[in-house]
């Protein structure tokens, strides 16, 4: 009997990169969302908490990424609209949504006074 389960790495996943709503589930992902109270950008951590720092995000891939997203989506008391975003091994944003996620991480490029923890996007 063959194993008919779909390959999680080939499944489409919810991703928000400009007009792109779906992407391939390939490579390292972290779960990101917006904070319910403030709208601030947040990331899901290894201990299943939310952090405003991408450095504290839990990066996983394949079925583990889908599972992490499912867990994160259960926490409606904290987060709005969780989705998977692409990251490099050092947790910097990558892939098609790289610029968008850099701006989400660091704040609007036109208002350096509103910058978040990291430097400005160039």
């Amino acid at each position: 009997m063959s194993d008919a389960r779909p390959d999680p790495n080939r499944q489409p996943v919810k991703i928000q990169a400009g007009g792109v709503k779906k992407g391939k589930n390939q490579g390292l992902k972290v779960v990101t969302a917006n904070d319910l109270l403030t709208g601030e950008v947040i990331y899901f951590t290894m201990d299943r908490q939310w952090s405003v720092s991408l450095d504290e995000a839990h990066a996983v891939e394949g079925q583990d990424a889908l599972n992490l997203l499912t867990e994160a989506a259960l926490d409606e008391a904290t987060a709005v609209g969780p989705y998977l975003m692409d990251v490099e091994e050092d947790l910097s944003p990558s892939g098609r949504g790289r610029l968008r996620e850099l701006i989400r991480e660091t704040g609007p490029t036109i208002h350096p006074e509103f910058a978040r923890a990291k430097g400005t996007v160039h």
């Binding site: 319910l36 403030t38 709208g39 950008v41 409606e76 008391a77 609209g81 701006i103 989400r104």
Partner: peptide, 28 residues
């Protein structure tokens, strides 16, 4: 009701939009 968990985000979203409240990249 959204903050207390009495309604979900899917239920709340059309209600906030009817009052002009969007969620953007960094904030509402």
């Amino acid at each position: 009701r959204r903050l207390s968990g009495a309604i979900t985000e899917d239920e709340f979203k059309p209600l906030r939009l009817m009052n002009g409240l969007y969620l953007q990249l960094h904030a509402y």
